[in-house]
Lab assay of single mutants.
Amino acid sequence: TYYTVKSGDTLNKIAAQYGVSVANLRSWNGISGDLIFVGQKLIVKKG
């Protein structure tokens, strides 16, 4: 599943929405910090 980042989104918010961990979101998307951008597509695997 792909999720497109919207204004106001955070990794924590997206992780909670999908029932996954922030660590997994980072791993699946090659993100090291907490910086995400509006319009960015993130890979999300269902929890």
Rank of each mutant, 00 (worst) to 15 (best):
F37A: 09
D9K: 01
K13F: 12
S27Q: 13
I43Q: 09
S27I: 13
Q17I: 15
Y2C: 08
R26D: 02
K13V: 10
L42E: 00
V38A: 09
G39H: 05
I36Q: 02
R26G: 04
N24P: 02
Y2W: 14
F37D: 09
L11E: 01
Y18L: 11
Y18I: 08
V5A: 05
Q40P: 01
R26L: 10
G47N: 14
Y3G: 01
Q40V: 05
Q40W: 05
K45W: 15
T1G: 12
N24F: 08
F37R: 09
T1E: 13
A15N: 01
Y18V: 09
V44C: 05
I43D: 04
Y3A: 04
V22K: 07
V5D: 00
V20Q: 08
Q17P: 01
Y18E: 07
Y18N: 08
G8L: 05
N29P: 00
V44E: 00
N12M: 15
S7T: 12
L11F: 05
R26T: 08
T1M: 15
N29M: 01
N29D: 00
V38I: 14
K6H: 08
N24Y: 08
V44W: 03
G33A: 09
G8V: 03
K46C: 10
I14W: 01
G30H: 13
Y3W: 04
K41G: 06
L25V: 06
I36N: 02
G30W: 07
L42M: 09
W28K: 02
K13E: 14
A23Y: 07
S27T: 14
Q17A: 13
D9T: 02
V22R: 04
I43G: 03
A15T: 02
D9M: 03
I36E: 03
L11C: 04
Y2L: 09
K41F: 09
Y3T: 04
V20M: 06
G8M: 06
L42T: 01
G30C: 07
T10Q: 06
T10M: 05
A16V: 11
Q17C: 08
K13S: 15
R26M: 13
K41S: 12
I43F: 11
N24C: 07
I14T: 01
I31S: 03
L42P: 00
D9G: 01
K41D: 08
K46W: 15
I14K: 00
V22P: 09
Y2V: 09
N24T: 13
N12T: 11
S32K: 11
Q40Y: 04
G8Q: 06
A15K: 02
L35N: 11
G8I: 03
Q40G: 04
L11K: 00
D34N: 09
A15L: 02
A16N: 12
G47T: 12
L11P: 03
K41R: 12
G19H: 11
L25F: 02
G33T: 09
N12L: 15
L42F: 04
V44M: 06
D34T: 08
T1L: 13
A15M: 03
K45R: 12
A16H: 13
T1I: 12
G8A: 06
G33H: 09
K6V: 12
I36W: 03
G39E: 04
S27F: 10
I14Q: 00
A15S: 10
Y18K: 05
G47I: 15
V22H: 04
I14E: 00
S21G: 06
S27K: 14
V38W: 06
Y18G: 03
V20P: 02
A15C: 05
L11S: 01
V5F: 03
S21M: 06
Y3F: 04
I14Y: 01
K46E: 15
G39P: 01
G8Y: 06
A16R: 11
K13R: 10
L35E: 15
V22I: 12
Q40N: 05
V44P: 01
R26F: 04
T10D: 09
S27C: 13
Q40K: 05
K13D: 12
V20K: 03
V44N: 01
Y3P: 01
L25C: 02
R26Y: 05
A15G: 08
G47D: 15
L25H: 00
T4C: 07
W28P: 01
K13Q: 14
D9V: 02
L11D: 01
S21R: 05
T10I: 04
N24G: 07
V20L: 08
T4W: 11
K46Q: 15
G39W: 03
T1V: 14
G19W: 06
I14S: 00
G30Q: 11
W28Q: 04
V5Q: 00
Q40S: 06
I31N: 03
V20S: 06
Y3M: 05
G30Y: 10
F37T: 11
I14M: 03
I36M: 06
I31E: 03
S32T: 15
T10R: 05
V5C: 05
T4H: 10
L42H: 00
I31V: 09
K41E: 11
K6F: 04
A23K: 10
D9P: 00
Q40L: 08
Y3E: 02
W28C: 03
L35H: 10
D34Y: 10
V22M: 09
S21N: 08
W28S: 03
K45H: 15
F37V: 10
I36G: 02
S27N: 11
T10N: 08
L42I: 11
G39M: 04
G8E: 07
S7Y: 13
N29S: 03
I43H: 07
G47V: 15
Y18Q: 07
V44F: 05
V38M: 08
D9Y: 01
G39F: 04
G8W: 05
L11H: 01
V22Y: 04
K46S: 15
G19C: 09
L25T: 01
S21V: 05
G47A: 13
F37S: 10
A15V: 03
I36T: 04
N29K: 00
S7L: 12
G39S: 05
W28G: 02
R26A: 08
K46N: 13
A15H: 02
I31H: 03
S32R: 08
V20N: 04
A15P: 00
Q40T: 06
A23T: 11
Q40H: 05
K6M: 11
L11V: 07
Y2H: 10
V44K: 02
V38R: 06
R26Q: 11
S7Q: 13
Y2E: 10
L35R: 11
W28H: 03
N24D: 15
Q40A: 06
W28T: 03
S27A: 12
A23P: 09
S21I: 05
K41I: 14
K6C: 05
S7I: 13
V38C: 06
D9H: 01
V38S: 09
T4N: 07
D34E: 11
Y2M: 13
G19K: 11
K46D: 15
T4A: 07
Y3K: 02
